[in-house]
Design a protein around this nucleic acid. Sequence first.
DNA 1: CACTATTTGTCCGTATGTATG
DNA 2: TCATACATACGGACAAATAGT
Lengths: 282, 282
Amino acid sequence: MAVGGGGTGYVPEAEAQLVDASNGAPLFHQIAVILRDRIVSGELGPGARLPSEADICGLWSVSRITAKRALDTLALEGLVARARGRGTTVLQRTRPPSATTRLDGWFENASRMAEATTIHVLGFGYRPAPAHVANELDLTPGTEVQHARRVRRLDGRALSHLESWVPAEIGRGWTEQAMRATPLMRLLAEHGAAPATARQTISATTAPPDVAAALDMVSGAALLDVRRRVVDASGRAVQFMRALYRPDLYRFEMELGRSEGEGGWRTDAASTPERQAGASQG
Amino acid sequence: MAVGGGGTGYVPEAEAQLVDASNGAPLFHQIAVILRDRIVSGELGPGARLPSEADICGLWSVSRITAKRALDTLALEGLVARARGRGTTVLQRTRPPSATTRLDGWFENASRMAEATTIHVLGFGYRPAPAHVANELDLTPGTEVQHARRVRRLDGRALSHLESWVPAEIGRGWTEQAMRATPLMRLLAEHGAAPATARQTISATTAPPDVAAALDMVSGAALLDVRRRVVDASGRAVQFMRALYRPDLYRFEMELGRSEGEGGWRTDAASTPERQAGASQG
DNA sequence: CACTATTTGTCCGTATGTATG
DNA sequence: TCATACATACGGACAAATAGT
């Protein structure tokens, strides 16, 4: 029995994607992951039909209850619509990945982003710098730093979770209200620490429960993990931040040409031991 | 009893990270996510001690078996070491994120990467182009394309899962052996489709089981999700590929300066409907 | 050296939720 | 709906290794 056709059809190598009961994760969840990936990858576009419950039973040798739960999970997330007789179809992305960032023109991006989004401050205070933060900011561990946790929203939808550390000598005296209304880059500039350059790494991670809650996601979902170390014109580290982005609402986009620079791909080796815990861990 | 101190100390807002039994995900898994994030974020560096099983019991009100399973999970992943009487400690990253990529100098990166890694071909063949691929390659859906699934390995460890589509008129006649030994960019060049530029988007996704198996990860883990549309000098699309990277072994790294270009941040709106499923989905 | 507290390893029995048939 | 199987989670108990007094 083949894949229940219809719509765009084409379900490649369905059987190659195995689900394993002894895997720890519930079966319905594993199947939901597979189908979700086909949707976000674009393989199943808006309007496309997902395999029916009966198809799923046959494809992965599971009971219909399990198949139904997998599809219901996707429906709860708003990815698909289910209807008797019509099957399960991929919904129009009401708002496709709402925000993309080009990696050139950092300053312009930051300020444009600040204009279009709102900030909610989750936490804000002064505390001794943990080791890895002190390392990034060239401070001795325990030095006081300003720590803030914020959420950026684009027309009501949580876009990113931002955790920022600023040396207390710079961040001293900022109010929570200022942190809500004024872009951090401007606050830094107004306190004699105008950002000049930054070193940024992009990775991925799973959402811990507190971040997941702040971003309206389930715990364990995949997030873009961006770390940025900002220095001013004199080379002093003025901010370290970790931003976690919802991948369905935010992504990076870039044009690749020929050479330009000659920085490039490299394996580990090198990298000084002091920096090990921090930026060069990546 | 407070947080089991020791080592680097500083466990911020431990109690603020709640675990919820009715969340769907198992408790031990939720706790493992929290602790794993503290390790990969650098908060707990090599040698640092994790909270003991008893600590975890108190912090999140779970039984010792649950606490133990959370810690055992991290030990299985090779992140921590456990020993009676000594507790659970973060391991030295024997090989820190083995590979990082600067985003300038695409060609140099690609060839350098090809030198240092090996390729394993998982699947290879010709088939009608699914809609989203045809869209990216400016073909009509159903046109024959060459499709390949490969895994890139760096000294034995799976680094990335690569899925590539090339129009059949270009990719016709390539052998599986050539795809293993010769960089794709060179193969393209040798068939009159020398890559000139590419448009790339970086996002994150969860690992479907087949990809997870190929990369030696558990299904559902977070992956870097990179899509690239390559065009030759005449503007013809010559390849579309989706690369999924292990975030612990690979990440992007870049320097951010002032302006340079004026491409930048934007919200949705715009974007032609035809391109909706693909790169300009954002 | 013993003594103790800490911490993990292993075992038991039981209750609940998930998934199959 | 029911019986069965398994994973999850709880509570408790004891043994073994480590570190400090």
